[in-house]
Design a protein around this nucleic acid. Sequence first.
DNA 1: ATGGACCTTGGAGTTACTACAGGGTCAAGA
DNA 2: TCTTGACCCTGTAGTAACTCCAAGGTCCAT
Lengths: 143, 143
Amino acid sequence: MAKQELSIGALGKLTGTKVETIRFYEKIGILPAPARTAGNYRSYGHDHVRRLTFVRRVRDLGFPLETVRAMLDLADQPDRPCGEVDALVVEQLGEVERKIADLERLRDELDRLAHQCRRGGRVADCRIIEALSPHHEDGRCCP
Amino acid sequence: MAKQELSIGALGKLTGTKVETIRFYEKIGILPAPARTAGNYRSYGHDHVRRLTFVRRVRDLGFPLETVRAMLDLADQPDRPCGEVDALVVEQLGEVERKIADLERLRDELDRLAHQCRRGGRVADCRIIEALSPHHEDGRCCP
DNA sequence: ATGGACCTTGGAGTTACTACAGGGTCAAGA
DNA sequence: TCTTGACCCTGTAGTAACTCCAAGGTCCAT
Ligand SMILES: [Zn+2]
Ligand SMILES: [Zn+2]
Ligand SMILES: [Zn+2]
Ligand SMILES: [Zn+2]
């Protein structure tokens, strides 16, 4: 492998990406197919490092691959206004804030649940299980 | 369908579960196979309502199906101590708190990102894309 | 008896990877 | 030179937890 060229494993180490993931990105068109060596090994250059780093950062920020694809498309058209990119970030910010709010509600409920049961009882008396089951015990059904 | 018996659609409405999901739970053994009517329709009773309600609530609290299964097993052995159930809740609480912390870090980063770009520029100058790509532009690779 | 709402089965699709199985390549050490 | 071990190749299947579809059967009211 010529200098400035990286094997798939080296690229993976450099970007914190598993080898299988890199091949997967190639298959679905997120990364372009690289040149091959005489022995049919993939050979990556600096552009691949840049592109894959971008992909991983965007993924780490919680964006789905679909959004990664959209951003890559936009980045490839440098003359278009960048409002769309910015909008994607703002949208994702909103989604993250929504998720945080959901999880905070969840946390409160779990916290309440965790305090309902003074340990040491039997499962039959567990308040947690009681709290999670419907409240009526008779044989007739709910509606 | 006799009274006190529910069709799969009725059970779904009652518990906020899609019909396909109920069948899926049956296939993987979370719900027992119900009786059938003459016309081969599934026929559910009150026990199914209770069990499915439990499953959905536990899922809504963010537990994976594997944990649901463990809880159902425990609930079926009423004489065992309930410490294990309680421990599962506490564990999940910790996980939710970890997720919240992760998302809060994410939110801050996205927020920073969203403020980097005063809109109106071109993609080529977009600070967001710049911030997400590696910092060097020369032809030699990173290591 | 006919329409429409509901039910049946089996199988495929979703997201974003991850894990083999069964081979080929390459560099270094004995 | 041979061999060993780390690395690479392809292709397929598996993961979580559903969700959707096709092609057909059932039920009830008009
Ligand atoms: Zn308890
Ligand atoms: Zn009931
Ligand atoms: Zn911008
Ligand atoms: Zn580089």
